[in-house]
Amino acid sequence: MAVEIDSPPVSVTAAAEARRNQLIGYGLAALGAVLFSSKAISAKLIFEHGIDVETLMALRMLLSLPIYLLIGAISVRERIATGRGLPSAGLLWKACLIGLVGYWLSSYLDFWGLQTISAQFERLILFTYPVFVVIFGALFFGNRFEKRAFLAFGVAYFGLAIIFLETTARLGSGIIFGAALVFAAAMSFAFYQLVAKTLIGAIGPRLFTCVAMTSASVTTLAFFAATRPLSNLMVDGTVFLHALYLAIGATVAPSFLMTAALNRISAQSNATIGIISPVITLLFAVSFLGEPIGWTDIVGTLLVIGGIGWFTLGGKKA
């Protein structure tokens, strides 16, 4: 007599698989946030060896470019194999141009500013880019400006003001220029977010990232060649290892981890996990750079995270 073995209902199996994908998504998002938070730390460690911004960016892009080219080539082959075809030349040129804004200009301003302000303060300023997304969206893209943004952004910028005033009193007015540069980086990244959305949908997130990063890499290397001697790239082993981590661990890896996470969890969940980024940067800065931390830093950080986090999460659907 045959013994029948009951199998779990399809709905139970599907629910378990969905839960597994969700947990993987949370893990990918968290790892991406941690790695991205280490970017400023790596840059600071490289600056300690007397490396300038142009050389740092050239090393970063030179080491990461082959990976983007390889992944881009794989994406192109997959599109052809599945009969989807390639994006139009117009779309690719637009991706190249927006890559210059989102990855070259924004990074250049950010690293330039990092030379004069702390990694903690830099991360908090960049974290306020949703402010500029809202402002630019309302001014140039016809988006609606939500009233609650006034309260959320007011709280966040009050927190930044607390840190800014304390840091200025301690280090002098020299940090104003650095802070202004990072604010400009946040603005350029916000503009990139607004313009890139349609292109990502048309080209695909993986291929778009590769095209945009390749464009930014070529521009970075050309700018370096025009302004610095090629001998600057002959760095010692310590700097090379820091640059290698900056290129792969803090640039390539988090860019694809975030994309993979969004394939498994909602934008709201991804944004929730991303809020840990300033906290991780603060912990890294204290642990690896020896940056001081006081009550003003803690209070200011909590206000920035609270204001931006409340606005970001309150406006997204799961």
Results as ranks from 00 to 15, higher is better:
residue 223 F to E: 04
residue 158 F to V: 12
residue 237 G to S: 12
residue 148 R to E: 12
residue 180 A to C: 02
residue 165 L to C: 06
residue 192 Y to K: 14
residue 193 Q to S: 15
residue 150 F to C: 11
residue 166 E to S: 12
residue 150 F to V: 15
residue 161 A to I: 13
residue 222 A to N: 03
residue 160 L to I: 08
residue 170 R to F: 09
residue 159 G to C: 01
residue 236 D to E: 14
residue 168 T to G: 10
residue 207 L to E: 06
residue 201 G to L: 10
residue 173 S to H: 11
residue 228 R to M: 12
residue 215 S to L: 02
residue 221 L to P: 02
residue 164 F to V: 00
residue 145 F to Q: 11
residue 177 F to W: 09
residue 224 F to V: 05
residue 221 L to S: 04
residue 169 A to P: 00
residue 212 A to N: 06
residue 226 A to R: 09
residue 162 I to S: 00
residue 170 R to D: 14
residue 224 F to T: 03
residue 225 A to N: 02
residue 217 S to N: 09
residue 227 T to V: 01
residue 194 L to Q: 08
residue 190 A to G: 14
residue 222 A to Y: 04
residue 138 A to K: 10
residue 226 A to H: 08
residue 156 A to L: 04
residue 229 P to Y: 04
residue 230 L to N: 01
residue 187 M to I: 13
residue 140 F to T: 10
residue 231 S to D: 02
residue 190 A to E: 11
residue 236 D to W: 05
residue 199 L to E: 11
residue 173 S to T: 12
residue 201 G to S: 10
residue 175 I to K: 01
residue 182 V to E: 07
residue 218 V to Y: 03
residue 178 G to Q: 00
residue 162 I to A: 08
residue 214 T to W: 10
residue 186 A to H: 01
residue 232 N to V: 06
residue 154 G to M: 07
residue 195 V to S: 01
residue 178 G to K: 02
residue 176 I to E: 11
residue 208 F to T: 02
residue 220 T to Q: 01
residue 209 T to I: 11
residue 202 A to P: 07
residue 138 A to H: 12
residue 212 A to G: 10
residue 204 G to Q: 12
residue 220 T to W: 02
residue 176 I to N: 03
residue 225 A to I: 05
residue 138 A to Q: 11
residue 217 S to I: 07
residue 164 F to K: 06
residue 171 L to I: 10
residue 205 P to T: 09
residue 164 F to N: 05
residue 192 Y to F: 15
residue 208 F to M: 07
residue 203 I to Q: 06
residue 184 A to D: 01
residue 140 F to G: 06
residue 224 F to D: 03
residue 212 A to K: 10
residue 194 L to G: 09
residue 223 F to W: 14
